[in-house]
């Protein structure tokens, strides 16, 4: 298995905003069908990492390979071609509030794949059922939904086109523990059913333990540790220990005072 082409491979990915370097050279491989969870504190560039891979932000340096092919610098049609492999659940779900729920779920099918509306609607209802939402929800507007329902609709939208790669940006942030667990289970179920490769970013360790095959910790713009989820508690890595035990003292310095 070691010589198989990884689904996603990052080599020396750097990204800075002005003078602030967010990613300092990230190297990581994600095997096909694997679920990687990237943990790390707030503002460590986890979201930026996902956005670089999916092509929403151009990295300043480094290379990103999807299925062995370079995707950095792709434009137009080629970029669109690669994007079809991805589905993403955004932190705040990012539902289009000008469209109702089923139109949101069917968006990638209608606009991205050119599917007829009637057919796409049936498929969207199907997807909503998969995430535990009834057909009556389909005609609501996103503003009428609770936080947990929005996340579920976002998940349904992400999986509707049956992508090969799924990204989850803080899937449980802002949800109560029970709803978090529901979302975690849905993510595991959907990823498994699709046979997709998944990258999730979170600082919710309960979620990480539930979703991950493998965990990587991002700190200071670098991956400071990575390993199977079972080894998370015995990593003997000072950064990971501090993070999973939630200690204020340790190698990670939290800036409390306002700059």
């Amino acid at each position: 298995m070691t010589d198989a082409v990884p689904k996603i491979r990052l080599k020396g990915v750097r990204k800075a905003f002005g003078r602030k370097t967010v990613l300092k050279g990230v190297d990581i491989d994600v095997a096909k069908g694997e679920s990687l969870v990237v943990i790390g504190g707030s503002g460590t560039g986890k979201s930026v990492l996902l956005k670089c891979i999916i092509g929403l932000l151009p990295p300043d340096a480094g290379s990103i390979l999807v299925d062995g092919a370079e995707v950095v610098g792709l434009r137009g049609r080629e970029r669109a071609e690669v994007r079809r492999k991805f589905g993403m659940l955004f932190q705040s779900a990012a539902l289009f509030d000008s469209l109702n729920v089923w139109e949101n779920v069917a968006f990638g099918l209608i606009e991205g794949r050119g599917m007829a509306r009637r057919e796409a609607r049936a498929k969207a209802m199907d997807m909503l059922a998969r995430v535990g939402l009834g057909a009556d929800v389909g005609n609501l507007s996103p503003s009428e939904l609770s936080g947990g329902m929005r996340k579920r609709v976002g998940l349904a939208r992400a999986i509707a086109t049956e992508p090969e790669i799924l990204f989850f940006d803080e899937p449980t942030t802002g949800l109560d523990p029970i709803m978090s667990e529901v979302i975690n289970e849905l993510i595991v179920k959907c990823v498994r059913e699709l046979g997709a490769t998944a990258i999730s970013i979170t600082h919710d360790l309960g979620s990480a333990r539930k979703i991950a095959d493998r965990v990587a910790m991002l700190h200071g713009g670098n991956i400071v540790w990575e390993g199977p989820v079972a080894e998370l508690d015995k990593s003997s890595n000072a950064f990971v220990d501090q993070f999973i035990n939630g200690r204020a003292e340790g190698p990670i310095h939290v800036e409390v005072a306002a700059g």
Binding site: L56, A80, R83, F90, Q91, S92, E111
Partner: peptide, 12 residues
Amino acid sequence: TEQIDALETLST
């Protein structure tokens, strides 16, 4: 609210 990012990820 990342809706524009979402558009792009949905190939639009």
